[in-house]
Nucleic acid binder design. Structure first.
Lengths: 165, 165
DNA sequence: GTCAACTATCTTGATATCGAGATATACTTT
DNA sequence: AAAGTATATCTCGATATCAAGATAGTTGAC
């Protein structure tokens, strides 16, 4: 099946035959697919009254395991947002009583963000729904193809996730 | 090389062994990689005084070929933003004299957005830089692996790009 | 031809994000 | 122990985005 990136690449080869646009075959698809996924997630979460950014924070805390707490800094590396954004997110989640801020006993600069019981419920309730939706999207591929795809993507994410930045 | 998604999946398997989180192996990597790419693009474009959203619009017009014009609607499907966002983008690009709005001669509701010569220069100047950066990111993979990866991603983007929505 | 349904674009208000800098605390070197 | 450097989080202002609805023009059924 042809997609928008096929059309885009064809157009560039006509307009700029001097350039090798092969990188777009992979990376434009990654960017576009991520935007499609965002839209789908936004729609799915709105049915349970949750925003994608709320899901990201609550589930990061949930999978940390009891007592479901992480520093804002740890949340930054998991969610790839800036510190100003995370402060704002924690403020809003705290106002909704889904998380609470505690002083870090080991570092007086630091803070621990802890899931409240209501926050934990929200996290658990939304995860199953997300997985169902994602499974439908991935039904295009065989189990073996999904493994292959995950492995190739890991090669690209690995450097970003391990080199500081 | 292990990445953040490996850690995330391991954590879920410990915390929620009742759920099959295999879909995250693919789709969380897509979302995270897209965010890394956004950051890298933002940095690279800032060196030539361009925002990623400006690049997206200018290059869509550029690859349409002479006379470098498209309707706002066509730009929507290429950039995956809402109509309100696109109106705003066109306004700002027009204020910088990178594009201009023309009435569509065939539909009086419609508008055509056309690249100015300055806009065309910006588009051409920025594309080569982007490709260089992307080539470096993709150097992790062999040519054959890149083709494989592009093909697998197309299977996922195809349905989104072809089913209306 | 007229009316209803549809389409293309724009307007508006609320909100989330970013970048840069501020503040407070911790660590390291001498 | 003082000074300088590094780290953790927050503050603030500017800006881009979205969702929903408004406006204007088109199309098709009759």
């Amino acid at each position: 099946m042809e997609d928008e990136v096929d059309r885009l690449v064809t157009a560039w080869r006509r307009e700029r035959p001097d350039l090798d646009v092969e990188p777009l075959e992979v990376l434009s698809r990654v960017s576009r697919l991520a935007r499609h996924l965002d839209r789908a997630r936004r729609l799915a979460f709105s049915e349970v009254g949750l925003e994608p950014w709320e899901f990201d924070v609550l589930t990061a805390l949930r999978r940390a395991g009891a007592p479901y707490q992480l520093s804002p800094g740890a949340l930054l590396t998991q969610t790839l947002v800036t510190s100003g954004t995370m402060t704002n997110r924690i403020d809003r989640l705290a106002k909704k009583d889904l998380v609470e801020r505690l002083p870090d006993p080991n570092d007086r600069r630091g803070v621990l963000v802890r899931l409240t019981p209501a926050g934990r419920d929200k996290a658990d309730a939304s995860l199953a729904g997300l997985l169902t939706q994602e499974r439908a999207i991935l039904a295009e591929l065989s189990r073996e193809q999904r493994r292959e795809l995950a492995g190739l993507l890991r090669r690209l994410t690995g450097p970003f996730d391990n080199i500081p930045g």
